[in-house]
C-alpha cells in the first residue's frame, strides 16, 4: 500500500510519500509543529520526498543520535548523495535540488530513524538555496515585530544572548530561515527546534563576540557576507548554488545593516540593539 503525507515547513508545502508500503511511524508521526496549521484543500506541493525501503539484513548501522555533523553531502553531477561520514557506504538518501525532490532510504523500521529530521533539514536547505535562500546557524529575537539575528561560530555567544530575553521574544536559538518576500527580508524559525514559529521582518544581523567591554561596529557588505556564509547550514558544494547565495546576500546586506558586537556577559547590550 502506498501512503502519502502532506506537511508544511515555513510555509512550503511538502509531500512525503512511499510507493512500497506504509510510511515508517517516525515519519507519519512527525512532531506536531510540522502540521500545526490545517492544510488548504488545494495543496500544491513545492517539494517532494520519496521514501524508499532498502534491504537492511547486512546493514550495521552506527548507534548515534543523528547529528547534522555526522552527515556528508556529495555532489554527484548535480544530484547530491547524502552519506554517513563515519560509514560512507551507507547512503541516507539523494537530493535533486533542481527538481525539488529527494529520496530518503529507510533501512528497517528503526535503524536510521534519527537521521530523518537532519535529512529533511539539509535537503530543505538545498531546495531553498535554488533561490539563494538559506538556513543559518543563528539565534534570533523579535522586538516590536522586527527580528534581529545573531550568528557566528560555536561559542560566539548566540545562545548566551538569547538567554537574556523572554521565551516569547526568542524566535529561535539555533536555526533561522532567511528569505526575501516582495523586496523585503524575512526570518522564520524552523519547526525542528523552535519555540516560536513566527515569521518577521529582518531588521539587522549581529555577529556577537564575547569581550570585556561592549562595542558595536558596523560591517561592510563584504565583511558581513564573509561572516554569514560560514554559518549557513551545510553550504552546498555547488558553483550555481554558491552564486545564488552570493547574489541573495549582496542585496540583503545592502538593505539590512550588519554589525559586530563585542559584549561582556551582562544585559547592557540589550539597550543598544
Amino acid at each position: 500500500m502506498a501512503e502519502v503525507l502532506k506537511i508544511k515547513i515555513a510555509g512550503k508545502s511538502i509531500l512525503l510519500k512511499s510507493e512500497q508500503g506504509d510510511l515508517p511511524g517516525y515519519i507519519r508521526n512527525l512532531p506536531a509543529d510540522f502540521q500545526k496549521k490545517a492544510l488548504p484543500k488545494s495543496f500544491k506541493r513545492k517539494f517532494e520526498y520519496l521514501v524508499l525501503f532498502q534491504d537492511a539484513s547486512q546493514m550495521r548501522f552506527p548507534k548515534d543520535n543523528g547529528l547534522d555533523s555526522a552527515i556528508e553531502i556529495k555532489n554527484n553531477s548535480g544530484r547530491f548523495d547524502v552519506l554517513l561520514k563515519s560509514k560512507p557506504e551507507i547512503k541516507l538518501g539523494r537530493i535533486y535540488p533542481d527538481k525539488g525532490k529527494a529520496d530518503f532510504f529507510v533501512y528497517g523500521e528503526q535503524l536510521n530513524k534519527n537521521y530523518f529530521i537532519p535529512f529533511l533539514r539539509n535537503s530543505f536547505q538545498f531546495f531553498i538555496a535554488q533561490a539563494g535562500e538559506f538556513i543559518l546557524h543563528a539565534s534570533a529575537i523579535v522586538k516590536n515585530g522586527e527580528g534581529t539575528v545573531f550568528t557566528g561560530p560555536s561559542g560566539a555567544g548566540k545562545t548566551t544572548i538569547s538567554n537574556f530575553y523572554s521565551k516569547e521574544s526568542v524566535l529561535s536559538d539555533e536555526f533561522i530561515y532567511l528569505r526575501k518576500i516582495k523586496g523585503e527580508y524575512f526570518i522564520s524559525a524552523m519547526p525542528w527546534r523552535s519555540q516560536n514559529l513566527k515569521t518577521c521582518r529582518l531588521a539587522k544581523i549581529i555577529f556577537p563576540k564575547k569581550s570585556k567591554e561592549l562595542k558595536i561596529i558596523k560591517e561592510s557588505p563584504v565583511a558581513a557576507i564573509c561572516k554569514i556564509m560560514p554559518n549557513i547550514l551545510h553550504m552546498p558544494k555547488s558553483f550555481k548554488i554558491s552564486e545564488n547565495i552570493l547574489s541573495f546576500l549582496i542585496e540583503a546586506t545592502k538593505k539590512v545593516p550588519c554589525y559586530t558586537m563585542r559584549f561582556p556577559k551582562n544585559d547592557k547590550f540589550m539597550e543598544e540593539i
Binding site: 561592510s220 563584504v222 556564509m229 552570493l246
Partner: peptide
C-alpha cells in the same frame, strides 16, 4: 570555478569545494 563579487571596493571569493569564504 570560483564564485566572487566585488562590492564597495572589497571582494568576497568562495571556495566551493572547501566551503571557505575569503575576504
Amino acid at each position: 570555478k570560483i564564485p566572487y563579487r566585488i562590492i564597495e571596493g572589497e571582494a568576497v571569493l568562495v571556495d566551493v569545494d572547501r566551503g571557505e569564504v575569503i575576504h
